[in-house]
Amino acid sequence: MELPQSVEIIEVGPRDGLQNESNFVPTQVKNEFIIALWRAGFKEMEITSFVSPKWVPQMKDAAEVMRVSGDHQGTIVLTPNKRGIDAALASGAKAVAVFIGVSSSFNQKNINKTTEEALDGLLPHIRSLKEDGIFVRACISTAFHCPYEGEIAPADTLALCRVLSDAGVDELSVADTIGKATPKESFSLFTLLKKELPEVLMAAHFHDTRKMALANIYASLCAGITRFDASAGGLGGCPFAPGASGNAATEDVVYMLHRMGIDTGVDLNLLNEAIRIVEPHVSRELDSWYYQSYKEEQSS
């Protein structure tokens, strides 16, 4: 078994983690959370979304978050459409994330377009962003399973990834949106993607709905993936995917990798301190194993 010596964790808690919160986390708290996460050692982070406040009110302060916390080389912001892209660029963003689902049903529930229609609208934006020298991350939803269509054929995920790669995206973040993938499926899909798209920067994004995120991350490591999205405290989900609970908890992922001798560059104590900043402001208990152990140790 050959495993990498180091892995890059893309922290998505401030964006993907908080977008599904029922509470609006105050802007000052978000900024304190983000700055503390940078201090913990992350080199890349999704910090906010330039989306319609009507649909995702938790991200209505995107410009202010960027003004205070976005002055970092690894800052990434989500941009769903031309309006969002323009707002992100006006805020000084140098790296943006776009998103699309493999499943047409998911796209129709999310943006009222089929996958083909969504691609027709997205590809010109990707080309325009690349002409302006912007780093483009493409987030691929429902890469394994869809809450409406069920199992997704690996060939369909590959086909979408290939189109986006040909359009010039810098990175593909391939997501198990509803947390239904098994380690066997993860190993198989990422082996296929790495074989067919060897030059593309690729990350894996797992949700822990069925408590298999860590097992899926391990399987993906074995398939050659060395970049993983994770969310501090296990925050998150997807507001457009019923049944999608929180993301893989960053602290549990980092703990597992460190125990395996794989470097992440993340300080676990500083990461847990960052989580403590946001915990009082979220609507559910943050129940990741490592964070709970840390709190028990601190209180003893």
Results as ranks from 00 to 15, higher is better:
288 S>G: 15
183 P>H: 11
270 L>H: 07
112 N>P: 01
272 N>P: 06
223 A>Q: 10
13 G>K: 03
117 E>C: 11
47 I>Q: 04
94 K>V: 01
222 C>N: 05
253 V>S: 03
44 E>T: 12
10 I>Q: 13
59 M>H: 02
131 E>Y: 01
71 D>V: 00
50 F>D: 05
24 F>D: 09
36 A>D: 11
247 N>Y: 14
67 R>G: 09
54 K>D: 01
286 L>P: 01
73 Q>H: 13
145 H>F: 13
227 R>T: 13
94 K>P: 00
140 I>S: 01
134 I>P: 09
217 I>F: 15
281 H>M: 02
82 K>Y: 06
200 V>G: 00
122 L>I: 11
247 N>C: 12
238 C>H: 05
224 G>M: 05
117 E>N: 12
101 G>R: 04
81 N>Q: 12
120 D>G: 00
114 T>K: 11
40 A>G: 04
88 A>P: 09
242 P>Y: 05
260 M>F: 12
182 T>G: 10
90 A>Q: 14
99 F>Q: 06
275 I>R: 09
96 V>Q: 10
233 G>K: 08
249 A>L: 09
25 V>A: 04
155 A>C: 02
195 K>H: 14
156 D>W: 00
84 G>R: 10
41 G>A: 03
106 F>R: 02
297 E>Q: 15
173 S>E: 03
183 P>E: 07
210 R>F: 13
178 I>D: 11
144 F>M: 04
250 T>Q: 05
169 V>Q: 06
33 F>V: 10
188 S>T: 14
